[in-house]
Design a protein around this nucleic acid. Sequence first.
RNA 1: GCGGGCUUAGCUCAGUUGGUUAGAGCGCCGGGUUGUGGUUCCGGAGGUCGUGGGUUCGAUCCCCAUAGUUCGCCCCA
Length: 427
Amino acid sequence: MSLSTQPYKGARDFYPEDMRIQKYMFSKLRNSVEKYGYQEYNAPIIEPLELYSAKSGQEIVNEQTYQFEDRGGRLVAIRPEMTPTVSRMVAAKRQELAYPARLYSIPNLWRYERPQRGRLREHWQLNVDIFGVDNISAELELIQLASELLIDLGSTSDMFEIRVNSRKLINKIMMSYLKLDDRVSHDLIKLIDRKNKLPIDKFKKELKDVVGKKFKDADSLLNINFINELPESVIDCIAARQIEDLINYLKKLGINNVVFDINLMRGFDYYTDIVFEVFDTNPKNNRSMFGGGRYDGLVGLFGVEPVATAGFGMGDVTLRNFLETNNLLPKLNPETDIIIADIGSEVLKVNEIAFKLRLNGVNVASDFTGRKIDKIIRSAVKQGVRYIVFIGQEELHSKKISLKDLETGISEQLTIDQAANRIKDRK
RNA sequence: GCGGGCUUAGCUCAGUUGGUUAGAGCGCCGGGUUGUGGUUCCGGAGGUCGUGGGUUCGAUCCCCAUAGUUCGCCCCA
């Protein structure tokens, strides 16, 4: 029985070409969020299981976490999301943090689920959260930042759409307008969450089953596209005005691809107010990419004074799909600048030249396979390394090295310092 | 957790209505060129046909199970 070379189901190996893409995406994301004053944190990949039981639908705890008993009999889970962890961290230092606290992280997260396009068992997720701001300037900043992340990665505003809704508004509608009890409104929320996946007539049928004789009101309400189309008894509430303000502010900031979407729910139960979601508008990948919202209740679960919180998370798998379907990934070269090839010189001489180049800030890999020159060149081209240097008898005599630029095909005889400068200039 | 498709060389795939030594293209390695690639020519390595069991004189092919992968459902940071 031979060992399998496959990575674990739903998880990925990152060979250098994949790692380069990940490093590229993460460094762009870091730059973008740091521009807004967010600071990076991290935490253990394992947490006590109860951290996740306390919140968010039970499903994620019972069926989607990797959980086990450690050697000391403690029930633990591999983190399926970062929000409980960051809430825990903020609660622990509630008194000493400087507010507003702007925190971000790019953790890897694990969920036990059936892998499919855009959803794997292990993924990395940018988490951006702001603590201590109880008005919509927090949401405004987060949505502005979310938009800027994608712009900084080369996308244009027509490639995505931002949809905004509010849990408070939904609750108001459910209770005051449709006058549904908790159970029915919960079912209705779950149904609306699936609306886009259902054929329209099937949706209407299920809607009728759920709300009964309130069908007509519910149906017409779910078809509105603007805040001012809300029924009169709802339109004057704070939640509705907040959404309107938020969208207006965003438009004044030049973010025009933002819309009100009364059907936007988002899965987690811990959202308390504004929620938003970013959609890929490309027909080939028309799906929700990421989202977030306000969740004011989580920090308070740790027995301290509640802290107003809003945040969002963005997964690396969906982000990469987005960048690929929209052709936004640049050609990424390896970090190695030069391959230095020994073609009949002396080992220590080649090593010495490599050492001097490295002192000059150049990344050098040696090829001492002793292969023919064309093979060495092919292998350099295959790796995407731009420069190659041959050291043979001629170079030893002339005290110069011949530097070949594989992009232009030009070879030059240079001193080591000249070669190093040439490479740094073109980096 | 449920249902469908797929699994043959490193990659993309052909193929055998069940018959002895399983193929192509690309890639890889070597050579034609005693020091210069992304051409060309020649040669070579590489497969227990996903795994386990069953039917059969005989299975890569048929049947069952199982794993992986993929699409959908459930669910959803």
